[in-house]
Design a protein around this nucleic acid. Structure first.
Lengths: 168, 168
DNA sequence: GAAAACGTGTTTACTTATAAACAGCCTAGT
DNA sequence: ACTAGGCTGTTTATAAGTAAACACGTTTTC
């Protein structure tokens, strides 16, 4: 082991601490697994959508929201997708410019958003790409396992409010 | 339903398309669940660590890597944590400035990184916060379920290379 | 009916992430 | 020895995300 110059250093933690912190970056630490999986999915989707359609993941998310909930407002999209208002605003701008969505004036200065026919076409082309991500990820799971995974993740989702509470 | 002004719009997709795209933002779509869970965890950890110690999640990640692998280089940390080189470089800078880590000169102009005693102390204070995130998330799972979750996520992890391959 | 409060969406300033270019150093080959 | 290439880690430029401030119009409230 190299000589330590310019200050004291610790080359070995106590066994207890090492055992604990070993977990953090191991394959057993769920938060790390979730982060790596999510990052890989987003990265893939971003690459494919940008490359083939010149749209970002946020644009795609908004487009997909309007496919399911035609006529909702930007604020609704923001809540529905758990997405920042500014991000939605920019995505709406992009989609408007490319004539993929239109809007009608709603109450209180709001605007109801709709897909245009080209928007529907674009949506139909993007959707399979997005769905394929899940297919690839789950391809080694049996149907029963896939179901169980969703059940377990659902239970985890229920704990999100407790994570947020802790910071207050 | 409001009148559509300034262009044609589509208020309703075909049943087939609607049924498909409905999945994307539903509780059954695994990529979305993973993203929401991961974001919530990172958000919580970021808030707590920044608030209590003035360090970001990247600083913490690097610190934890050095606790498990004392003496590794910045490049090693980058690979170990699947983290951008630039991010590691900045984190190392922060940690150096605060005397939480030291370095010794290694081969080829590399530097071996070590925790200092204050770094170990900081690590011991931060670790429980990080571990608590997982505890909260898994708190409604039985031990058997928790194990199964890790197994399933492990199978998903094995598919990450296939996600990356698709973009080439 | 004027003033305050609210809800809409946009803009701004700031932070963070990403990838490519870069400079320095060592090694290897000729 | 001297050049070419391959490492290290840093810097830079660009893109993306975040939160607060903002402007505008519409309700309320007195």
């Amino acid at each position: 082991m190299a000589h330590v110059s310019g200050g004291s250093a610790v080359e070995q933690l106590s066994p207890v601490h090492e055992a604990l912190s070993d977990v953090i970056d191991s394959e057993a630490f769920v938060p790390r697994l979730l982060a790596l999986l999510s990052n890989a999915l987003v990265w893939r989707e971003s690459m494919l959508l940008r490359g083939e359609f010149g749209l970002g993941t946020n644009d795609w998310r908004v487009l997909s929201a309007l496919a399911v909930r035609p006529g909702i407002t930007a604020t609704d999209v923001s809540e529905f997708l758990v997405m920042n208002k500014a991000v939605v605003s920019k995505a709406v701008n992009v989609l408007m410019t490319r004539n993929l969505i239109t809007s009608t004036d709603g109450p209180r200065g709001s605007r109801n958003l709709f897909l245009t026919p080209p928007g529907v076409e674009m949506h139909d082309q993007m959707l399979p790409i997005s769905l394929a991500g899940e297919d690839i990820l789950l391809s080694q799971l049996s149907p029963a396992e896939a179901t169980q995974l969703r059940v377990l993740l659902g239970k985890l989702m229920a704990q999100i409010p407790r994570l947020a509470d802790e910071t207050t």
